[in-house]
Each structure stands twice: as C-alpha cells, then as structure tokens.
C-alpha cells in the first residue's frame, strides 16, 4: 500500500500545483485544497503505515499492545487538517470579496494599481 500511496501523494501534488498555477482564482482555491490533502497524506505515509491498530491503550494495561500505529504523525496531521481548513475558509472568503469588489476571476487582473511599486 505504501507504494500506491506514494504515487497517490505525488499525483495529488501534481494536480494541486497545476490547479494553483491557473489564472482562475476559483481553480487556485481548488488547487489549495488538493495540496492540503496531498500534504496530509504525505505525512501519514512517511510516518509509516500500520493496519487496524489505533494507538489506544486498552483498559487494564498501561501501554498499547505492539504493533500500534504511530501517534506522532497522527497528532501532526490532526493539526494540519484543522489549520488548512482555517486557511481555506479565509482564502475562500477573501477571493469571494475580491471578486465582488474587482469583478474579475482572472488573477492577471489583480495586480494592484498600475505603476504602484
């Protein structure tokens, strides 16, 4: 499965980056979402895969039975998911506002006032 996931992560990165390089800002947002999926999965895969053994200590013992899934990447990913949602929500609203005030979907037209450097 690791090999499959490696290719999946690479594919998601490629797709996300491709979408982010589009001029349409809606596509940019979608690329951003794909990129955060890719990153989540990347950390998960690199952290090592363990089937069906969540890092939970059963009642009565003080340590989980070996093997168990590594909790450290999971904790990182949990943070990553939540933060990327925060970023996403902000970006979506920002772009919606930009579109409302500027009236364009093309990021080439969002370059500030001409000659203002």
């Amino acid at each position: 499965m690791t090999i499959v996931l490696a290719f999946l992560v690479g594919g998601l990165y490629a797709g996300g980056l491709y979408m982010m390089m589009r001029r349409s800002i809606v596509k940019l947002i979608m690329g951003l979402i794909l990129l955060s999926y890719a990153t989540t999965l990347l950390i998960f895969t690199v952290g090592g895969l363990t089937r069906a053994a969540p890092p939970i200590v059963p009642a009565g013992v003080s340590e989980p039975p070996v093997p168990f899934a590594d909790p450290v990447p999971q904790a990182l990913i949990l943070t990553a998911i939540v933060i990327s949602f925060g970023v996403l929500a902000f970006a979506v609203v920002l772009i919606e506002q930009t579109h409302r005030s500027v009236g364009t979907d093309d990021s080439n037209n969002l370059r500030g006032i001409e000659g203002e450097l």
Binding site: L41, F44, T50, R51, A52, P54, P55, L78
Partner: peptide
C-alpha cells in the same frame, strides 16, 4: 485510508 490504517481520530 485513515480508518484502514489505525487513525480513527483523523
């Protein structure tokens, strides 16, 4: 995928 690989919280 998270479910399959022991990450129910995720």
């Amino acid at each position: 995928i998270f479910v399959f690989f022991g990450a129910p919280d995720l």
